[in-house]
Nucleic acid binder design. Sequence first.
DNA 1: TCATCTTCCTTCGAAATCGAAGATATGGCG
DNA 2: CGCCATATCTTCGATTTCGAAGGAAGATGA
Lengths: 380, 380
Amino acid sequence: MRGAQGDLLRLVAAGQAESRAELARLSGLAASSVSLRVEELIGSGLLVEEGEGTSRGGRRPRRLRLSPTAGLLAVADLGAHHARLGLLDLSGTPLVVEERPCEIAEGPEATIDWMAAAFEELLDKHGPAGVPLRGVGTGVPGPVDPASGRVVAPSRMPGWNNFPVAERLGAHFDLPVLVENDANLMAVGEARSWPKCETLMVLKAGSGIGCGVIVNGRLHRGRGAAGDISHVRVRSDSSVTCSCGHDDCLEAYASGAALMSVLNEQGIAVGRPADIVALVEDGVPEATALVRNAGRLIGEVLTVLVNFINPDAIVVGGSLSPAEPLIAAIRAAVYERCLPLATRDLEIATTRSGRDAALLGAGSLLLDAVIAGAPDGRHT
Amino acid sequence: MRGAQGDLLRLVAAGQAESRAELARLSGLAASSVSLRVEELIGSGLLVEEGEGTSRGGRRPRRLRLSPTAGLLAVADLGAHHARLGLLDLSGTPLVVEERPCEIAEGPEATIDWMAAAFEELLDKHGPAGVPLRGVGTGVPGPVDPASGRVVAPSRMPGWNNFPVAERLGAHFDLPVLVENDANLMAVGEARSWPKCETLMVLKAGSGIGCGVIVNGRLHRGRGAAGDISHVRVRSDSSVTCSCGHDDCLEAYASGAALMSVLNEQGIAVGRPADIVALVEDGVPEATALVRNAGRLIGEVLTVLVNFINPDAIVVGGSLSPAEPLIAAIRAAVYERCLPLATRDLEIATTRSGRDAALLGAGSLLLDAVIAGAPDGRHT
DNA sequence: TCATCTTCCTTCGAAATCGAAGATATGGCG
DNA sequence: CGCCATATCTTCGATTTCGAAGGAAGATGA
């Protein structure tokens, strides 16, 4: 399933191609070769022909889809106090998504074993009989070394430092395993909803602040820590020391956690970032002012990055993203201060993929691993 | 010369491969296919076999080089008051490099026509007889729209806005033409000297401040303006209005031009950035303090970008780069404030390619255009 | 000195890929 | 309705690429 066949499968799975002709155009292969390969893929049960598409002035294309029996992916997105878990088919379409409470602070062993059990349960309940699991993956709220699948120096995952997450997860499933930073997964998932954007910045505004970068259509990891914006120094009157040891980090002013602690000090009880959104929607002025200020600070940091990276779009997701004043303040700061050349065609918008973005991203990256690693049905 | 053959030629030209075996390893083609293609390239006069390399424990490789008669590239790097001009062979090795005075403010027509004449002169004087010119290219100190080859909204090129530079230059030579921002060219040229670095930031500290970014081994352009760091707001006590209309831009504090105007106000006469370097080397305290402060400001901006992009190296070039305190202050700021994860393996160093970096970069990008555009000896 | 290992390169039949031509199916137009 | 333009997909011979085997040339070590 490597090489040409893998490419074709990927194009179909990603929804970029629906017919042999489209595959030929996008893959660069000759139409005849595409036909051959597609026939083989249908023969091996991975693709199916499903009706006909609409004519574009000539013969109607025969639509191709991934076979529903081709396989399943089990994916998760770990947060501090809860996890989203899902089963996807190979095209990345969710069959089930659930959110369950889960304390990441209980440590890696307990959490990963719990996750594995939850995957098994989902498979039992919702997995169609006879459809094999092809890969498992999870997002974690901290930096991941892509080579080893270890969590490295996470600021909000006590007990996880240097833990071989991929290895432990792989011990439960003899399958391709993916472990990646949650904001990076969000970025990959979101990128599928922005097909025309080559360069994309995806901001995750939740209890922390994360960011994933898509450059040239692909996730940019750098040496593993790329995308961090939370420990940038912001312009500020007061002086707050961040958990990282430096003063005046963005995270200490503009993260959901920081906003919550300010509100709680003011006697307004909030338990999670979504509560802040509710307060803003209820018109509570303290909350609105705080959120707007957070947006301004984030926007000022983005200013530097927008001039530098020149993205096609900035997408804001995470549990704070439904708060209108946040986006508005980010937009104001970026458009006011960036070079006209950089903002001319820049779109700043909220997530198109919604809360499942990270799960979709995990599916997308996992599919690559599955295609690369598992020749024709066997799983390594 | 497209496809496989182009890839092979590129690998040899870039100095990445010197033998058929290396070509096979790097190109991914089978050794037998490589041999075939190489034979053809030798037959068409583009490659030559030149002696033997050193054994690595087995039979000695037969070294391959681009034929000296394969072609020439004429390249330039336009500055505000002078231009560097050179002839390169297809492997990017300079035959001649000259620096000539040239006032960019005289406008695009005059400057480009002057450049074309200078190219002709260099070819007459230094071009080996019978070796065809294969491409021309130039760097300009302003943003370039990659699609049209026009200069867009340049802050330091009066009269050039929206001028079709590539078109005008192409009118003199019926050849592939390259027009690109000077810092971007520097980045490409420098990247050849940092073969192990996938992600690279190249800072040009001259009378202006420019930056080029290499992501995944390739120049990142964004929508054409990527790499700008000069109009980022810096933390500062006073308030200076930049030419871009905003307050407290980095360029207004840390560019060579800004430093020169401060020194001149202090009664220390300087005419060009290199004079500042001389003052620093002579131990003039005013100059040293200014340069150190500029480095600190630049470093603080880089801080944000290093956390975000996670480069393998930051390379500092441009006419101010020989000033030791500049690099020292940049290093101090970056290492002090960035995430340990991002600085762990980060190298911050001065240019390896020297003053010709931009010319080398132009050669590298031009070679791609030449290989892509000119099938077997004909030039389109 | 001589067998053995490594590396480089070529040979040659097998396999994959291409591309031109044609078969199939549709929309548009007089 | 018949014809043409367009688009999709297949057939089939020509071409390219592969990969296993082997030849060439040198390093290594007993």
